[in-house]
Every structure is written in structure tokens, then in C-alpha cells.
């Protein structure tokens, strides 16, 4: 097996008294799509936020393309010795609440980080930004402000914005949960295309259909640990663990 794109080993994270992650191990190969399921409070979003060090873990190791990002040589770039620059320019993230910059146009949302962080020229960034927005089907919205867009459109801008940094890994944190039902598909379709192009993806989701069709691996979390993981068909159709069965029963019953 080739070197893992992302490898987590023994990740622990606590918020005060509350231990949210209690020893998580996970390997994600290049080009793989891993869907993370679990009840709310199971630690799945926190796990995702550990991968790009928005929430640095207290204990454990995270390897990104073979580099231990929890204690890298570029110490001093953030709190403690996290290799923030290395991580955040390789890992893109899309949020439940979109978090688009409301005071910037759609195109500026997409070009801001490449210009400021990578120091690229305006013309180059705008050309690339337009191409990305065309790819997510929004080339007619370049000069709109985010508040004029539907939730689904905003989320697709957010995906384009993350892609503009040319990440090697994309994190999706319940990106369809805040959307009206009829807008979910357009976002999932964009993610499906991205997966087909070979992007490595970690996806926290409640969309069972997406996990089944697009996921290479499905991970079920509960109580801060991984309870069960495997191929989508195994975990979703023949869960071994009681907790997985119970959760899937509740979700699929709807």
C-alpha cells in the first residue's frame, strides 16, 4: 500500500472537562473518499478540524503526506509548533455555514487567499477563479455578493474558494446540513465530480446515499472513537456493532 495521504494515530482532544476525541486512528489513501457518520456530539466534526489544525489535538500524531504536522520544523508559525502553513495550503475545508466573506464579491472570495497567501498576481488568480467558478456552475455570479446567492450556490462558491488554493486534501464538514432539501443535490453533485477527478476527501455527512455511492470507506464514530469502519456496503448494509445498527436504524427510518 502506498504512503497514506492522511494518517491519524491516537488522536485525543478535550474541551475543558469534556473529552471529545478519545484515541482515533485513521488512514486515508491518496484519491480516497472517506465518509464519516455518527450522532451529533460523536466528535466527527472535531476530528475533521484536527486534520487542518483548526483544533490542534492534545495528544496523538497526524501525518500529512508523510510529514508529522504536530511537531514539524516550522515551529513558531502558530501556537506551539504546529506547521500551520504547510497544512493549510494543502488541506482545503468547506463548512456547514458556508462562511463566505460577505463584504467580497464571489470572484474576490475565490481569489483572495491565492493572492494574499501565495502572492500570485491578480490576473492569474482571476483567470483561475473564473475557471473554478465555471466548474461549479456559477460563472454568471462572479460579481455578485454572497447574500444574493442561494445556500446551494454559496456552498459551491465555498468549494471553489477552497479549491483555489490547490489543496491535496479536502475536508467537508456537514456541508449540506444547512441547505434546503432541493439545494442539496447541486452541492453533492459538485462533490461527486471532485471525487471522480481523484481528490482525496474526508466528508462528515448525514447523506447516506452519497456515502454509499461515492465513499470508498465509511467510518462510524460514537463517543469520540471510531466504532466501525469499512466499505460502504459492509458498514451500511451489514453493520457488526450494535451502536452502528441503532444509529443507522434511526437515520434510515426517517
Amino acid at each position: 500500500m502506498p504512503e497514506a495521504m492522511v494518517k491519524l494515530a491516537g488522536i485525543h482532544k478535550r474541551f475543558g472537562e469534556l473529552e471529545v476525541l478519545r484515541g482515533v486512528d485513521l488512514e486515508v489513501a491518496k484519491g480516497e473518499v472517506v465518509c464519516i457518520l455518527g450522532p451529533s456530539g460523536s466528535g466527527k466534526s472535531t476530528l475533521l478540524r484536527c486534520v487542518n489544525l483548526l483544533e490542534p489535538p492534545e495528544d496523538g500524531e497526524i501525518f500529512l503526506e508523510g510529514h508529522d504536522i504536530c511537531k514539524g520544523p516550522n515551529s513558531g508559525t502558530g501556537e506551539q509548533s504546529w506547521e500551520l502553513d504547510f497544512v493549510r495550503q494543502r488541506v482545503g475545508m468547506v463548512f456547514q455555514q458556508f462562511n463566505l466573506f460577505p463584504h467580497k464579491t464571489v470572484l474576490d472570495n475565490v481569489t483572495l487567499a491565492p493572492r494574499q497567501v501565495l502572492g500570485k498576481g491578480r490576473a492569474e488568480c482571476e483567470e483561475k477563479g473564473k475557471a473554478l467558478l465555471e466548474r461549479v456552475g456559477l460563472s454568471d455570479k462572479l460579481n455578485q455578493y454572497p447574500e444574493r446567492l442561494s445556500g446551494g450556490q454559496q456552498q459551491r462558491v465555498a468549494i471553489a474558494r477552497a479549491l483555489a488554493m490547490e489543496p491535496h486534501v479536502m475536508l467537508f464538514d456537514e456541508v449540506t446540513s444547512a441547505l434546503d432539501p432541493e439545494l442539496v443535490k447541486e452541492v453533492l453533485d459538485t462533490m461527486r465530480e471532485l471525487a471522480e477527478e481523484g481528490m482525496t476527501m474526508l466528508v462528515v455527512t448525514h447523506e447516506m446515499g452519497f456515502a454509499r455511492e461515492v465513499g470508498d470507506q465509511v467510518v462510524f464514530m460514537d463517543g469520540g472513537v471510531i466504532v466501525e469502519q469499512g466499505k460502504p456496503a459492509e458498514v451500511l448494509d451489514n453493520p457488526r456493532e450494535e451502536r452502528t445498527k441503532k444509529f443507522l436504524g434511526l437515520v434510515l427510518e426517517r
Partner: peptide, 10 residues
């Protein structure tokens, strides 16, 4: 979320 988005973009 605004800071998080900005920070996650590097």
C-alpha cells in the same frame, strides 16, 4: 466562522 474560513485558507 469568518476567521476559521480565512485561517483554513492559509
Amino acid at each position: 466562522g469568518q476567521i476559521e474560513a480565512a485561517r483554513s485558507l492559509g
